[in-house]
Computed example of a mutant assay.
Amino acid sequence: MAFDLAAYAGLFSAALIAATILPLQSEAILVGLILTGDYSIVALLLTASVGNTLGGAVNWILGRGVERFKDRRWFPVKPAQLEKAQRWYRRYGKWSLLFSWLPIGGDALTVVAGVLREPLPTFLVLVFIGKAARYCVLAWVTLHLS
Rank of each mutant, 00 (worst) to 15 (best):
A2I: 07
F3W: 12
F3C: 01
F3H: 05
L5N: 07
A6Q: 09
A9V: 00
A9M: 03
F12C: 12
A14I: 14
A14S: 15
A14F: 12
A14R: 11
L16S: 10
L16E: 11
A19T: 01
L22Y: 15
Q25K: 13
E27A: 07
A28W: 13
L30T: 06
V31I: 15
T36K: 12
T36W: 05
G37S: 12
G37Q: 11
D38G: 13
D38H: 14
I41H: 04
A43D: 08
L44Q: 06
A48V: 08
S49F: 04
N52E: 04
A57P: 07
W60N: 07
W60Q: 08
I61E: 02
R64S: 06
G65S: 10
G65H: 13
G65D: 06
R68P: 08
F69L: 15
R73L: 11
P76H: 10
V77D: 09
K78V: 04
K78P: 00
K78T: 04
Q81A: 15
Q86K: 15
R91Q: 15
R91S: 14
Y92L: 15
K94P: 00
S96R: 09
S96Q: 12
L97D: 11
L98W: 07
L98C: 00
F99V: 06
I104V: 14
L109I: 02
L109Q: 02
T110E: 00
V112L: 08
V115D: 04
L116F: 08
E118A: 08
F123N: 04
L124V: 05
V125W: 01
I129H: 01
A132S: 15
A133P: 05
A133M: 11
R134Q: 09
Y135L: 05
V137P: 00
V141G: 01
L145P: 00
S146H: 12
